[in-house]
Design a protein around this nucleic acid. Structure first.
Lengths: 350, 350
DNA sequence: ACGACTATTGACAGCGCTGTCAATTATTCG
DNA sequence: CGAATAATTGACAGCGCTGTCAATAGTCGT
């Protein structure tokens, strides 16, 4: 067993020696720096291949004084009932996609905003790992205390869906309000006059925009807004069920229910089934997010696709660009959502 | 603005100077090494606090020649329809918990086992980041090719729920088979004689054990096993719906349905509602995993709690111990699941 | 009080890489 | 063709920490 051979890692020195150049030139090739003659590049690349050389990231980080890490902060799902696992997984996927291209690493950090030591915890994590930048997911992104703590460390920060724009902060969001207006107009175009809305979790400002979009949509189509048709939810499946029961026991119930997220919309679907209401014949239901479940329920849920993966990708690219090119970058980006019309919505009954 | 002061990070040298000792002694204190006089330790600790010193991890890793990283590999949810986001989030939570205590970092790596470059991708990632150890989640943990690729790098490996034991490999699992037998006995104890089972995804050996447990349970209670009562599923909500329809259209339908995971069980619940069957009065339904949704549906789902967080914690601790203490460690650990009796199961009708 | 310990501390050489800047070529142009 | 310019390469000094091993300071027993 000559494992030892493959075990003892080749270093940049070995490559330099084999290729007959200085380590600095090897470094140039490895980092795709310009000003290396094509012939030397080839020599070095073949030496790298032959030795199966992989640069040591710790050494690189230490020498270059930067970490090649992107931090992703989100509300710790463990403190809830794991509500938003899909949300987090999609964010991670987006960041990972963007990182892969440039060989950065992802550092994930679930955190509990109710924890009073959070400031210290974050500062400590940032100062120790020194990520190149941080992506702050909603709803943390609209908590001024957290934003400030991170900004105080001097680390570049991108906020995801913070609910409001801010000129001097990097932000990526989706067009919650506009797209919800569009969904509402779509429902109205099917003939619905009584369109109900189930609002989302309070702490989540971007989700609040969805409600505003709903109202915009009503206004656009000349429908009246009625408090009777709005019930408060908290983004959970259970609250969707509760809200649906409340809306449907009404003497003059809505013919369409638009929920601020899919979990609640699926709750509505369940209640409808229990009450013997056919969807979409008797009731139209729409959600927001396009979670996996939305495609699996029956009837499949009409919803709005929130482009989380692309938002996270974009946020990551913002950070990378901020670190590499010195150019001014666009600091506010809207990645639009998209209506996904499926089976749960249809013409108004009768 | 004297930001600069807080910006320029204190190094071990600054601490040593302020405390009037050598950097080596500071290093000892930071790493909790023995043989430091109490009085000097205090001096150094106060200097650390005053300068707000945080050790630089890259430097530490480089000098000590080890990475302090734990790698977590799992099947990339992006390639499916994001089925198992909750599963992954719980695994991450467990690893993170264990890492926090010892200041290790988590490196996540979703991977697609259908990708033919996976070997190269994994080898490259391992050689580059050099994690102290790797945790391989099911179903990857029962794919010999992947296991071998990782073992070939010489990195310690813990397999999660690989479906079978193997003497020379570190493994953490739950008692799928036994606990499913228990669930089956529980259903039988409610008077059910026709208990159906919906099997899980093929590639997932541990999930296969659940089916065996179901059969064991039937045998234990003297019930006959009937192929009529077994339908194949693939772990998805949709396949649960499909299986339920198949089972319930039967002329002599089951009075209880036990699904190999919760997603499918929730599918059963939906179909029951659509067919006008009351749960648990007309039909009992049980699942496996205890996902968040299980507690939110109505009736709340009776299921088996798979202790994923604790499994991941334990796996991480195994790796850490393997790296620090040289002692032989127990290389196979079963963390038992637990029945969660809720509202979806009840006495047999009539 | 003195040698033989043991406990505590420090000097120094890297770990493997990048940044700086100087040295060495190639290339261009009058 | 030579000087000027540009392209390519390399020498070397760290980055901030840990490991090794030698130096120093305490402690104990007699």
């Amino acid at each position: 067993m000559k494992v030892s051979q493959s075990k003892s890692k080749a270093t940049i020195n070995d490559v330099a020696e084999l290729a007959g150049v200085s380590i600095k030139t090897v470094s140039r090739v490895v980092n795709n720096e310009p000003n290396v003659r094509e012939s030397t590049r080839e020599k070095i690349e073949s030496a790298i291949a032959r030795l199966n050389y992989r640069p040591n990231l710790s050494a690189r980080n230490l020498a270059s004084q930067r970490s090649h890490l992107i931090g992703l902060l989100y509300d710790d799902p463990a403190t809830y009932e794991l509500p938003s696992a899909g949300y987090i997984i999609e964010l991670q996927e987006g960041v990972l996609n963007a990182c892969k291209l440039v060989k950065y690493d992802l550092l994930i950090h679930p955190c509990n905003y109710r924890d009073e030591n959070l400031d210290e915890e974050l500062t400590s994590m940032i100062e120790q790992r020194r990520p190149l930048g941080i992506i702050l997911a909603a709803p943390l992104s609209n908590m001024p205390g957290i934003v400030k703590t991170i900004e105080d460390t001097g680390t570049p920060l991108v906020r995801l869906s913070p609910g409001e724009r801010c000129a001097d902060k990097l932000t990526v969001a989706t067009n919650d309000q506009e797209i919800c207006a569009e969904m509402t107009r779509y429902l109205a175009s099917l003939g619905h006059r009584r369109i109900a809305f189930i609002t989302g979790h309070q702490g989540h400002k971007a989700v609040g925009k969805r409600f505003e979009g709903y109202r915009d949509g009503l206004i656009n189509t000349g429908l009246n807004f009625s408090e009777q048709l709005v019930v408060e939810g908290d983004n959970s499946f259970g609250s969707g069920r509760h809200a649906a029961r409340q809306l449907l026991k009404n003497s003059n119930p809505p013919t369409a229910i638009f929920a601020a997220n899919d979990d609640m919309a699926v709750g509505v679907l369940l209640v409808a089934a229990q009450l013997g209401l056919k969807v979409p014949e008797d009731l139209s239901v729409a959600g927001f997010d396009d979670i996996a479940l939305a495609r699996q329920v029956s009837p499949a849920l009409t919803t709005i696709r929130q482009p989380l993966v692309r938002m996270a990708e974009h946020a990551t690219q913002m950070l990378i660009r901020e670190n590499t090119s010195g150019d001014e970058i666009q600091n506010y980006e809207i990645i639009p959502g998209k209506l996904q019309i499926r089976e749960s919505t249809g013409p108004v009954p009768g």
